[in-house]
């Protein structure tokens, strides 16, 4: 293939890539950035200023919401990891053959169902007139109906539920690659369950843990549906706040500033996580 032909094909392949990313991702974000740094001083006249960002920091409700969202996301990530690890270990190391692949596919099941449907399922289970409340009354364990929805524990549970897949899959694949004989050797040399877990299994599965955590964290932070539906009006989720600014209040400037604040918080925490673990974004995100 001669070089001018190569150049031509390269340009032919590069242009859809650049058009797609440029027009749909990069330029919109740049535009949104400019929107976030302008301030309405009079009808249809604007000035460049950081007023929108200043408003975020002066209004405690806003930054409380962001801090709360970030904190809950980190907590959800840690809990997801703790819950998923034994399951992933069971699938990867305790099972063989058909059962193994069936259980693994079962873990992927929620992914095949819309998040809306899943959340709807939890609402049917947990609301005042829901399945759990009625069952408990029927069993005589409680006297009146109980509302399980609209509290932080429920939101947390819903977030963990949604994220589970993205934790289990990378964990199973790294644990799968751990040679059984390493565990056997650990036993042979007199290790206890705990020490083998700490010194062999967890160090080996670190890449999977990191990539799972990062993906789960990003997804949780950007989640909208679960906190809004399970947490209700008082859920104080930052994406909900963004939606309010844009759609309800029609204050696009402030909303755009919020978007950037969320992106900054998200990338800072992800960057810290990557730095601490010595991995790259490409290796983690591309895997899932």
């Amino acid at each position: 293939m001669n070089s001018s032909q190569t150049r031509l094909t390269l340009i032919l392949l590069l242009s859809p890539f650049l058009l797609w990313l440029g027009l749909l991702v990069i330029i919109p974000h740049i535009d949104m950035f400019f929107l976030s740094i302008r301030e309405k001083v009079a009808p249809r006249t604007y000035e460049t200023s950081l007023a929108n960002y200043a408003e975020f920091f002066t209004e405690p409700f806003y930054w409380n919401t962001l801090a709360r969202t970030a904190f809950m996301s980190i907590l959800a990530t840690v809990l997801t990891l703790i819950i998923a690890f034994p399951v992933a270990y069971y699938i990867a190391k305790m099972l063989r053959g058909k059962t193994k692949s069936i259980l693994f596919l079962l873990c992927l099941l929620p992914f095949w169902v819309s998040e809306l449907v899943r959340t709807f399922g939890w609402m049917i289970l947990l609301r005042e007139t829901g399945v759990i409340s009625s069952s408990l009354q029927w069993l005589g364990l409680i006297d009146g109906p109980i509302e399980f929805l609209y509290n932080d524990v429920t939101v947390m549970m819903g977030l963990i539920y949604t994220s589970m897949l993205f934790m289990v899959v990378p964990l199973v694949s790294t644990l799968d690659s751990l040679d059984d004989s390493l565990i056997e050797a650990g036993y042979d040399l007199g290790g206890s369950k705990l020490s083998i877990l700490k010194e062999i299994v967890i160090p080996h599965s670190m890449p999977g843990i990191i990539s799972g955590c990062i993906v789960v964290f990003m997804l949780t932070l950007g989640n909208y549906l679960t906190p809004i539906l399970l947490g209700g009006k008082s859920s104080m989720w930052f994406t909900g706040q963004i939606y309010t600014q844009f759609i309800t209040r029609f204050n696009w400037e402030l909303g755009a500033a919020f978007c950037f604040l969320l992106l900054i918080v998200s990338s800072t925490i992800v960057w810290l996580g990557l730095k601490l673990s010595g991995q790259t974004l490409a290796s983690t995100v591309a895997k899932s």
């Binding site: 989640n223 994406t239 755009a256």
Partner: peptide
């Protein structure tokens, strides 16, 4: 695009 939350991706396109 995988890293940007879906809500923000939607909004940015709306804005642009």
């Amino acid at each position: 695009p995988l890293v940007i939350p879906g809500v923000i991706l939607g909004i940015s396109i709306l804005v642009f």
